[in-house]
Each structure stands twice: as C-alpha cells, then as structure tokens.
Design a protein around this nucleic acid. Structure first.
Lengths: 225, 225
DNA sequence: GGATAGCACATTGTATGCGCTTGCAGCTAG
DNA sequence: CTAGCTGCAAGCGCATACAATGTGCTATCC
C-alpha cells in the first residue's frame, strides 16, 4: 500500500466506499487488475467483506475519474487506452504539468527542493524491481503536483494520469531504457530549480521518452518551432 | 433543458443514475439548488419516484466532479467556492481554455466558425433574462471545448468550470455589465479566427472581467510581462 | 437563568432480495 | 456442417429493510 496519497482525495475518511475506492485504485495501478479486466461487484464485495453497495459507489466514482468504464448492464471494466487516447491524454498532461512546474519554480522552497532531489537520487540509484520504478515515477510527479499550491491542478493531474500509469506499468521494456527514463527526471528538476528553460518543452521531451508523439494533439505541434 | 451535452459524458446511457446525475447538474446550474444547500437523498428520490440508491450514486459521481461535497454522515451539499478557490480554478481554466483555443485556431472549419459566430451574435443582441445570458456564456465556451478535438480536454474543462458557472449564475450585476461581459466573447472569437494574439492573454483578460485577479495563482503572474 | 446531559427524530450508511437484461451453450433445422 | 433459435445461468440495476450516527429539543441540575 502506498503511503503518499493526494491531500485532496485523502480528506474524505472512514467510509467503506472511500476505502474501497482507494484500494481499487491501488490494485489497478499495481497491475492486479489490468486494462480490459472486468470488475465483478459481487467478487469485490466478498473480498472486502461488504455488500455490493459500497463497491458500486466506489466503482461509480472511479468511472467519473475515468479509470474504469461502464458497459450498460454488463459491468465495469478497467479502462483500456488506445494509442490515440494515450496521446490525447499526454498532450494535455504536458500543458498541465508544465503549468505546475512553472508554479513550483516560482515558489521553490528548500523543503520542496530537498524532497524532489531525494526522489531523483533514488531514481538514479534504482536497481530494483519494476514496481518500484513505477512508484518512484509517480511519487516524483505527484510531489510536483502537490507543491504547485493549486489543489485543483493537483487533483486534475492525478485523475488525468492515473490511467496512463496503469497503462505504463504493464509495459515490458528493458532495464536500461527504464533506467534512462527514470534518470531523465533530473532534467525536469533542473528546469524547476534553475533557469529560463520552457517547462512545456521539458515535459514534451520527457514524455517523448515514453510515447511516440505526445505533441500530436497539442498546440505545441503547431504554434511553436 | 440544454441540448448541447458533452460527447464524452453522453456516452453513458439510459440508466436512472445517469438521468438523475444530469438532472441534478442542470438544477444546480440553473440555481434551483444554490451553493451550500443540502441535497437530501430521500427528498430527491421522491421527486424522481425512485429509491435512494440511484440518487446516492448520482451524487457520488457529482462529488467526483467537484460539484457537491460530502460531509461524512451529514449529507451532500452543493459546493460553495471561496474567493481563493474561484481564483485557483480560474487560473487553471486560463491554461486549459487557452490550449483549447489554440487547437481550435489550428483546425478551424467553416462549421465551427459559423457556430461560434452565431452564438456571439446572439450574445450581442441579448436583452432577455439572466438565465439566458448564463446559458449563452456556457454554450459558447462548451462549443470551443468540443471543437478542440481532445475529448479529455473537453471533459476536464466541463467538470472544472461547472462549479464556477453555478457560482456565477447567482451573482447580481447590472444589465450593462453583463452585456459587456457577453460581448467580450467576440474578442475570443477573433483570436481563434485570426492572428498571432496569445490565447492565454485573451482568456486572462476575459476572466478578469468576471473575477478580480484570476492570474494570482497562475504562472502568468510571474513568467510573463 | 444558563448550561449540560439525555432522549427522540431525522438522515445517512450498509445489507439483503428480486427482476430483468445480457451472454453463452446446446440443440434443431436446413 | 453451419446458421439460427431457445433455454439457462450469471450479473447488474433498483427497491426495500435495517443499523449507525449526527442533530435538535427538552428537561433537569447547578
């Protein structure tokens, strides 16, 4: 179970619906449920020793977050992203995360700097299992979102990218490539610490390492260069 | 009842939960339920001649959209935005809607041009009731979001701004001011049709007419000028 | 007279049950 | 052998019922 939860999401406590919602999120992110998998209400209810109602409500919220989709009278399924959808989401992510990076850069504190630097150093030292790499990746970006100071931006990036992370975790790539991607976070950190580099372009480069052409549905494709 | 529904939202069909969800959205937007109002499950269930379950699930989704908030064991309440929150949302809206405008500008078609122009002309001829003004405002922006071609961006702007519109509808301002705000949409249209003007700055100016300082939480406050 | 504790009511949270739709397997007919 | 139909089983959507908790009122005590 991850310890770093979004503050905006964490403020809703101690109801079964909320608990199940979080648990399902983690399970989908960790790959227990994979894109396209069916989420059977009764089975999940049995797992949590509850009735189906809290499960239904949790799934209902996850549907609104875009993590699962509902096929009328057939059930809930973990969202399966097409290549186009991945790129549409990524284009959007560039815009939002670039804004977050600008905000962080404008109000950088020693604490935030230390936190981000710490994660990057863990990334550069990473040797371990794939699950840790995904976790580090998400932790770094989540730290940026949180540090930007706009809870709506944080919330939006969280719900926008969660299906991306679920999608990416399953990807089979070599240790070296994964290591390279992780290390590239240092570049993002530098942009936030330092100079005049455009965060949008930095994010574009960053996402290019993972997706073919994230700018295809972005205004970066036409309004710049 | 509005006829222009988001495509991404419209793909979920004919279940009571969905119907109630849409109806409640409209009712909140139209001002039947005002920010801070309590949404009593049983009462709503009676209104729709259903049980509480579909109502709960609809409210659950609206909570995820950020339109209502849940006070543990107390009930659902229509979200009430503080001045800070309005500005945080607006800052974000600038970034997103500017991106949408860039995308529309890059792929402008005669149909879209005609649609947007039509709405602007209705706005400039507007004399009628306040509800119509709010409706026109939302229709214009929703048309942009849809035309941008990225359903995730559309969805995001929709859920981000819905509480803003619910907030703004109640505002008591003079006929002239409201008319002036409406007419200003012509400027946005010009940016999308024409030249090199920065959509972000246009949106900033646009939102300034409604909110004190939308750039307070935006990177526009620091990284430009 | 004011404050506090206790009680009754209202309302949300959860459990169980039923009907209907959907999907599949087996069968029959061409 | 294939195509279409029929019967069955599984699972969701909703309704009813119960439990738990918060709220407001009242009565009693200081």
């Amino acid at each position: 179970m991850t310890t770093s939860e979004s503050t905006l999401l964490a403020m809703t406590p101690s109801t079964l619906r909320t608990h199940i919602q979080r648990a399902l999120r983690s399970q989908i992110l960790s790959g227990k449920y994979r894109p396209g998998d069916r989420l059977n209400e009764s089975h999940i209810a049995r797992e949590f020793n509850t009735s189906r109602i809290p499960v239904r409500e949790a799934l209902s919220q996850l549907q609104e977050q875009g993590l699962v989709m509902n096929l009328e009278r057939r059930g809930m399924f973990v969202i399966k992203l097409s290549e186009t959808e991945v790129q549409q989401i990524s284009s959007l992510r560039i815009v939002l995360e670039a804004e977050a990076m600008r905000l962080v850069r404008a109000s950088m504190t020693p604490e935030i700097r230390a936190e981000l630097t710490g994660i990057v150093e863990q990334m550069e030292a990473w040797e371990g299992p794939l699950a840790d790499a995904a976790e580090l990746d998400r932790r770094f970006h989540a730290a940026i979102w949180k540090a930007c100071g706009n809870p709506y931006l944080e919330r939006m990036l969280d719900s926008l990218t969660i299906s991306l992370f679920a999608h990416k975790t399953l990807e089979q790539v070599s240790h070296e490539i994964r290591r390279g991607r992780l290390s590239h976070h240092r570049a993002l950190l530098d942009v936030m610490l330092g100079g005049d580099a455009d965060p949008a372009l930095a994010m574009l480069t960053h996402l290019r390492m993972a997706y073919t052409e994230p700018e295809r549905f972005s205004s970066l494709a036409t309004s710049r260069d």
